[in-house]
Design a binder for these strands. Structure first.
Length: 578
DNA sequence: GCCGTTTTCGGCCCGACTGTTTTCAGTCG
């Protein structure tokens, strides 16, 4: 099970050591351990107790000791010591784009800064330019960095980035003469939010392409403009777009390189080196004895790059250095795919806040080849979303029965029921018993509730025999609000104990559960439903977002409840209601 | 600090762009 807290501590050790000028390789080792802790399916504390920490990749004698110390004392002495040695102002100043550890330390030391505001003032007063290695342009750049830091959105939801990408690609093709223009980076990896957009292009006239990139519609600033790379900030949010152009024979290598992730690419290049090869964005090359590059052996296609390294092609969404590289020697495990999904069990109609009828939704589900689907309109308390009362619910059943006669897809009469602030449910038991499928979700967010209250709220719902599935469990809305604070160990324990399922809500604004919680749920064997919460027929298509996020968490078909056939699913429902 | 079908010691990924530099360090991805 991943250990996010411990992972953070190792990252902090790495950052602080960097500022203090520590050994760069030792620092990398700490970062590596941080990544391992963040993603390992193993229970780290259990490994610690059994003396098996060093089985984890990148964990050696020194880092194992620190992990053990954390579990025994709750802290890491080395980290406490590092914190004492680093002025917090340096950490603050480092958050300014373009200011790294070296410059931050220099500026804080030379100018006695306490904050970013101090730095801003120093630039305006031209007190930065006298410092060795700084100049007038440095002041300008830092001021621009501070301004951008204040207005740049840190991460953009994937769906918004994909919309922006479409426009960027169209412009580069039309104005830049690009013959290829594809979004790479975390967008191609289907990460739920992205920091920036990387677009790789091929173009007969690279200079023209670069010019088109620098003049993208909506660009508010050109951040860099070279022969092969141009970066601009787009719109109010200053969404950063990096455009790269490479020669056609390097297309595959560049595609691999810019898709990343950084960690994945680093591991690939390490692997290459051991094989006497070297990899960059232009191809895979033989490494000569004197360390210089020799003949090119691959690069035109992505497949050729992986093949040259003795690997099968790895789907982009798995490229996070989560163990995929070693496995790709023989072939990756079979993960869930869109074609495995046999039903969608969370959808709304005009009975509450959807825009289509039961029949329209059923026909849309049928068109996707689904064997079953559930209509899950809101419950009475969700008045803002047109929640049904008991009488309407009964009439809805009649409409569902009528629609069922016209379609083959099995229509379940369900509900998306509010979990009230104290954990009580919004429908009486008798109503729940009359329904085929019950999704229970938190909608009213109480600001005063703390972690314990939030946890109790979900646990009580999980304890109730009438509940099948917890909808969008964290309640996060990407780019708008974070999820509620829960004790997830306790929540998942309750789900496991009572045989309940958890949702991966595929709405691109939610994608909830997130990757880390999905890994945790998988490790505990908790069934996951990937569904869309569709409010219109077209929204069933969002299932792709959910499937991709599930793959990023390495969910196999067997981990996903709605890969079951209707027969299996019916059996599961009966079994868990018995 | 980790690691070994070259190695238990000596390596450790790679390149673009920028600004302040007369040849490169810092930052970023």
């Amino acid at each position: 099970m991943p250990h996010a807290e411990l992972s953070e501590l190792f990252r902090e050790i790495a950052t602080l050591s960097t500022i203090l000028g520590g050994n760069v390789f030792a620092i990398r080792a700490q970062e590596r351990v941080a990544t391992t802790l963040e993603t390992t399916p193993e229970d780290v504390e259990k490994l610690a107790k059994e003396g098996r920490l060093r089985e984890m990749p990148g964990v050696g004698e020194g880092t194992a000791k620190k992990i053990l110390e954390f579990f025994q004392t709750g802290k890491i002495a080395e980290l406490e010591e590092l914190r004492k040695q680093v002025d917090p102002a340096i950490l603050a100043v480092m958050r300014v784009p373009g200011v790294g550890p070296k410059k931050a330390k220099l500026l804080v030391d030379e100018l006695g800064l306490k904050s970013v505001e101090d730095l801003e003032k120093a630039c305006r007063d031209q007190r930065v330019r006298p410092i060795q290695g700084m100049g007038a342009k440095s002041e300008e750049k830092i001021l621009a960095g501070i301004a951008s830091m204040r207005t740049t959105r840190e991460r953009t939801p994937l769906w918004e980035a994909r919309e922006a990408a479409e426009k960027v690609v169209a412009h580069l093709r039309k104005a830049g003469g690009a013959t290829e223009a594809v979004p790479t980076g975390s967008l191609r990896r289907w990460k739920d939010t992205v920091r920036d957009l990387d677009v790789l292009t091929l173009a007969p006239d690279p200079a023209k392409l670069m010019k088109a990139a620098a003049t993208l519609p909506g660009a508010v600033e050109v951040l860099a403009h070279g022969e092969t790379k141009t970066s601009v900030a787009l719109g109010q949010d200053r969404f950063q777009v990096d455009v790269r152009v490479v020669p056609a024979e390097s297309y595959g290598a560049a595609l691999q390189y810019f898709t990343g992730s950084k960690e994945h690419s680093v591991r690939l290049r390490e692997r290459a080196q051991k094989m006497g090869l070297t990899v960059n964005e232009y191809g895979v090359f033989k490494l000569k004895k004197d360390g210089t590059k020799g003949a090119r052996v691959a690069g035109e296609t992505e497949e050729s790059v992986y093949e040259a390294l003795g690997l099968r092609w790895i789907p982009p969404e798995l490229r996070e250095d989560h163990g995929e590289i070693d496995l790709a020697e023989k072939g990756l495990p079979r993960l869930v795919e869109r074609r495995d999904i046999r039903g969608d069990v969370h959808a709304h109609t005009t009975w509450s806040d959807g825009t289509a009828s039961v029949e329209e939704m059923a026909r849309a589900a049928e068109k996707l080849g689904y064997e079953y689907m559930a209509i899950t309109d809101h419950s009475p308390t969700a008045a803002y979303a047109g929640g049904l009362n008991a009488e309407k619910l009964k009439r809805q059943r009649a409409e569902i029965d009528a629609a069922q006669k016209k379609v083959k897809v099995r229509i379940l009469h369900g509900t998306e029921m509010d979990i009230l602030p104290d954990g009580r449910l919004d429908w009486p038991d008798k109503v729940l018993e009359s329904l085929d499928f019950v999704v229970a979700s938190i909608h009213q967010i109480s600001r005063s509730a703390d972690r314990a209250a939030n946890t109790l709220r979900l646990v009580r719902a999980l304890e109730h025999p009438g509940v099948d599935l917890i909808g969008h469990p964290s309640t996060r809305r990407l780019g708008m609000r974070p999820g509620l604070d829960f004790d997830w160990d306790e929540v998942f324990e309750a789900a496991k104990k009572h045989g309940k399922a958890m949702e991966l809500n595929s709405s691109p604004e939610r994608l909830d559960l997130d990757e880390i919680r999905l890994r945790q749920a998988k490790a505990l064997g908790i069934p996951i439903f990937i569904d869309t919460d569709a409010h219109a027929p077209g929204m069933y298509g969002n299932i792709e977002y959910g499937v991709m996020q599930a793959r990023r968490a390495w969910l196999a078909p067997g981990d996903v409840a709605n890969t079951k056939t209707w027969k299996e699913f019916e059996k599961w429902l009966k079994h868990r209601r018995a």
